[in-house]
Simulated scan of single mutants.
Amino acid sequence: MINGKIIKGIGGFYYVDTENGLYECRARGIFRKNKITPLVGDRVSINVVDEENKKGVVEEIEERDTELVRPPIANVDKALIVFAIKNPSPNLSLLDRFIVLAEKENLEIVIVFTKVDLDTDGELLDELKDIYEASGYKVIPVSNKLKLNIDKIKEELKGNTVVFAGPSGVGKSSLLNEVDKNFELKTGEVSDKIKRGKHTTRHAELLKLECGGMVADTPGFSSLILDDIDESELKEYFIEFDKYDECRFGSRCIHENEPSCAVKEAVENREISKKRYESYIQLLNEIRAGKRRY
């Protein structure tokens, strides 16, 4: 058997990158029996059944360091969460969902705002930077049109396995085409009618970078579900809450209706973004209600 990494999965076939080249593989039936689905990013061992035509079978899957559900990808180091300044306008509740899911997997997070050339006076960008930099995140504004900060994106990607995540139409594939000229990813325009992008990426795939490392270009999503997150743990994924631990109820405080809550006081004092706190309460209520949005 030889070792490799799944870089693409389509229709039950898994494409495994190894030191001997790329193999098209099926997975053993035991995985289906045990309800295990191989993921892009999985480190695997394969049995070669046809060397000439590069065919094989996935025999073993190593334990995963991280696992994202949407997008379905394993063993990522860093998440670049990509939203547009305009066209489409950023849905901050959706952005916060991506952040929560990345925080849950303990990924390093960088927030990328694209199409900043459309923000002629810079007010939208300033507002968003105020929210997310104050929350503890690195924010990189980019413009493919102006070639703005493309080098900064390359630095974030270098030597890492990175997931590009975000809704459709924000320019993820276009940005990757700028980062590495060897990429020829399909891009789509934003629908004038519904103000959402057309899905141009149909599956998760790891792409090798000239600058080193790998990046996952993933399908866009209009909503995310917060599976396996309890209402008592959600606060852990809003990292700006961490330093306000003087609450009367201590670790039992969920920062909602409790009196003398330091987090709520910080919101009132504008030390914590009101919009971020409102996102937190919205997600808290959705978790309680067991809502599932697809």
Rank of each mutant, 00 (worst) to 15 (best):
K5H: 00
I6E: 01
I7M: 07
G9R: 07
Y15R: 09
T18D: 10
N20K: 15
N20Y: 13
G21Y: 08
C25E: 10
R28C: 11
F31I: 11
F31N: 07
T37A: 06
V40C: 06
R43E: 15
R43A: 08
S45R: 11
S45G: 04
I46P: 05
V48H: 04
V48N: 05
E51F: 04
E52F: 08
N53E: 09
N53Y: 12
K54G: 05
V57R: 07
E59G: 02
E59N: 12
I61G: 08
E62M: 11
E67D: 04
R70C: 09
P72D: 02
D77G: 06
L80Q: 07
F83K: 12
F83A: 12
A84G: 10
I85T: 15
P90Y: 13
N91E: 13
S93K: 14
L94S: 14
L94G: 13
I99P: 08
E103N: 13
K104I: 06
K104Y: 10
L107H: 09
I109Q: 01
I109Y: 07
I111H: 11
I111W: 11
V112H: 09
V112C: 09
T114R: 10
K115G: 09
V116H: 08
D121W: 06
E123K: 15
L124F: 07
D126E: 14
E127G: 02
E127R: 15
Y132H: 06
G136K: 02
K138C: 01
V139Q: 00
P141D: 03
K145A: 05
L146G: 01
I150T: 07
I153E: 08
I153A: 04
L157P: 07
G159M: 07
N160A: 14
T161Y: 00
V162T: 15
F164V: 00
G169T: 05
G169N: 01
V170M: 01
G171L: 04
S173A: 12
N177P: 05
E178I: 01
F183K: 06
T187M: 03
T187Y: 02
T187G: 02
V190D: 02
S191W: 03
I194R: 12
G197V: 06
R202H: 01
L206H: 00
L206Y: 00
K208Q: 08
E210Q: 09
E210A: 09
C211F: 08
G213M: 03
A216H: 05
A216P: 01
T218P: 03
P219A: 03
G220W: 03
S222N: 13
S222G: 10
S223F: 10
L224F: 02
D230Y: 15
D230F: 11
L234Y: 03
K235E: 02
E236D: 14
Y237E: 10
E240W: 01
F241Y: 09
D245R: 07
E246M: 08
R248C: 01
G250R: 11
G250S: 07
S251D: 10
R252A: 15
N257S: 12
E258Y: 06
V263K: 05
K264T: 04
E265R: 14
E265C: 00
A266E: 06
I272H: 03
K274V: 14
K274E: 15
R276V: 13
R276S: 13
R276Y: 05
E278C: 04
I281V: 15
L283E: 15
E286W: 08
R288L: 05
G290A: 05
K291V: 14
R292D: 06
R293A: 10
Y294Q: 12
